[in-house]
Structure formats: structure tokens, C-alpha cells
Design a binder for these strands. Structure first.
Lengths: 84, 84
DNA sequence: ATTTATGCGGTAAAATATTACCGCATTTTT
DNA sequence: AAAAATGCGGTAATATTTTACCGCATAAAT
């Protein structure tokens, strides 16, 4: 699959993360304290600039006490282009 | 959060991956061809032995043409212990 | 007006994931 | 019985993430 598409999904993931953070009225630095992830790194994740690892995903979900799948709760469909 | 819990989630993820692979009657080597991930690495993922990155998750979902959240479609609840 | 908070860009070092192999024991197919 | 396929363990080299910082421009609060 093309990297372009992976990065699109990363952006959707980041938007969902930001949505959750704002819903709880947390700043990046406030969230940092909840999950021990540097605020500038969280910022990169929210903008889809970091190809984060599984542990990081779980850590973020844990900070919000939600199931990790909640962070993937966005619209997305595979297109043929993704593989060409 | 404790690493132990992240690894538990990793195991659940791996089981779900294996479930999807078997449902489609694919061997590790057959799946390898669909997603360009080495079969022995897939094997580690299925057993929860690899803290995989986001790109890898998306690549695997793409091989099955499912939404990435499908790979997180397992039962899981946060326990207080996870943070102590 | 001053102070404080916020998002974000950059960075060097350390830790870790990923690749691309090999081989082996066991199961499945022919 | 022989051949082929399968799951899996190991490994060295490479690529990448992650950490732990700094500072700055702007926004918000006092």
C-alpha cells in the first residue's frame, strides 16, 4: 500500500485524538501529565506527523480510559488507488 | 500505564489478526504477499511479541480491506491496576 | 500592560521497530 | 513414502520512533 494512504489514516487518527482531548478541555501539557508523552510529540501525533507505535496508542487510550478502537472511530474506506 | 497491560492489548490484537487471517484461509506466507510484511514478523505480531507501528497496522488492515478499527475489535476494559 | 498558558517546530541521543534472511520441527498434500 | 507447506525462533543490519529538551509567536488570563 502507498505511504500516502497510511499518512491519511494517521491524520484521521490525529484528528480523533484532538477531538477527545478538547472534549475533555485538556491542553497538550495537561494531557502530557496523564500519559507521560511529551506535549510536542502529542502535537505531532494530532497533526498526523508521527508514525506512532502500538504502545503509544494504548497509552493514549488509557489516558482517556477508552478502548483503543475509540481512537480509530472515524470514517474511512479503502480505494483501489491505495494499492496502485 | 504499566507495560504489562500494553502487552495484554497487543496479544488481543494479535489474536484478532490471526482470526482474520484464518477466516480467509491464508497462510503466513500467503499473507506476506498481500502486505509485504515478512511472515516471521507477522507470526510475532499474531503472538503479541511485536510493538508494531501505525503504518504496519494500516498495512495489515489494507491486506484484508477492512477498517483498521476492525483489528481492535476485541473485548477490553481498563482496570485501575493498569495504572498502579 | 504583564504574566502565564498554549501550540508547535526543531534537535540530538537513545531506544525500538522493521527488514530480509536462514533453518528446523511438524503437519499437510500428493 | 516423498514432497511441499506451515508456523515459528533466531539474527544482524538498517530505519524509525521516542524521549527530553529548548525556544518562540500568539492567545488568554490577571
Amino acid at each position: 500500500m502507498k505511504n500516502k494512504y497510511k499518512e491519511e489514516v494517521l491524520v484521521l487518527f490525529g484528528e480523533k485524538l484532538k477531538e477527545l482531548r478538547l472534549k475533555r478541555k485538556l491542553s497538550l501539557r495537561a494531557l502530557e501529565k496523564e500519559c507521560d508523552i511529551d506535549n510536542s510529540y502529542i502535537s505531532k501525533i494530532e497533526r498526523g506527523k508521527a508514525n506512532i507505535g502500538f504502545h503509544t496508542i494504548v497509552e493514549l487510550a488509557g489516558a482517556f480510559k477508552v478502548h483503543p478502537k475509540e481512537l480509530f472511530n472515524f470514517e474511512h474506506e479503502w480505494k483501489d488507488e491505495a494499492f496502485m
